[in-house]
């Protein structure tokens, strides 16, 4: 296993203002597995994803990434785990405004070893359809192109875990399907554990498992699309 949450719970505030953003959760994702987390706005999806990604600590319980229990680590060590193990594709564009597409990836080469080779990078650009954009700055890209570059950036570091929050939100349907296809291929070929938070139920056909988040409760919904019958 790669990523596990054991009795993990996240609350904000206390007393009258206490919010249980994520109730006690047990969750496991294996290498080569692509899972979706769906649920209404405010149900706790991002909370779940950021706790799982070590960006915030659970109020109770444990998060274990590749055998490392995150609460045993200090912020510096957690930051290192994020750098080495996790690729984030976030709701907000996570591109650096003053770096070109190439430089966005180059930056990772400066802070981390074992990223994609030049050939792998070229292949990735082709898969994502951003080959011609490699010298552009983020301000010269469309929303969808920016999202695809963000994906390239997340995959470039060859993470063992991919965490994506609404990765297809600013893409048209065709592109959205292509991106999901790509995430699926990456998951299978690199044996990453991939969690995708999404509103778009049409994308569920690409994933292995679907979890539904309702009022902070995460529940395994189905392992196949045909059983879902979901409407958002």
């Amino acid at each position: 296993m790669v990523l596990e949450l054991r009795n993990a719970k996240k609350t904000f505030g206390e007393g009258n203002t206490l919010v249980e953003a994520m109730k006690e959760t047990n969750f496991l994702v294996e290498r080569g597995e692509l899972v979706a987390v769906i649920g209404p706005s405010g149900s706790g999806k991002s909370t779940f994803l950021t706790v799982a990604g070590g960006l915030q600590s659970p109020s109770e319980g444990q998060v274990i990434i590749n055998g490392k229990e995150l609460s045993q680590l200090n912020e510096k060590q957690r930051s290192k785990v994020r750098l080495q193990e996790i690729g984030f594709i976030l709701q907000a564009s996570n591109l650096v405004p003053f770096l070109t597409v190439d430089e966005q990836l180059e930056l990772l080469n400066k802070v981390k070893k074992d990223n994609m080779s030049k050939d792998e990078q070229r292949k990735l650009y082709e898969d994502l359809g951003i080959t011609k954009l490699h010298k552009n700055y983020p301000s010269d890209l469309s929303g969808g192109e920016r999202q695809r570059v963000a994906i390239a950036k997340a995959l470039f570091s060859k993470p063992s875990i991919l965490l994506a929050d609404e990765p297809t939100a600013s893409l048209d349907s065709d592109r959205a399907f292509e991106v999901m296809e790509l995430l699926r291929n990456e998951t299978k070929s690199n044996q990453t554990a991939t969690i995708v938070v999404t509103h778009d139920v049409r994308l569920i056909k690409y994933v292995d498992k679907v979890y539904k988040m309702t009022d902070g409760v995460l529940k395994l919904e189905s392992t196949a699309e045909k059983d879902l019958g979901l409407t958002e």
Binding site: G53, L55, K76, S79, K80, V81, R82, L83, Q84, I86, F88, L90, A92, N94, V96, P97, L107, K110, V111, K112
Partner: peptide, 16 residues
């Protein structure tokens, strides 16, 4: 700040 935050989320260290 938000740009630095995103880089930190990715695991780029404060020291860098």
């Amino acid at each position: 700040i938000s740009m630095f935050g995103l880089m930190k989320a990715q695991g780029i260290s404060s020291a860098y």
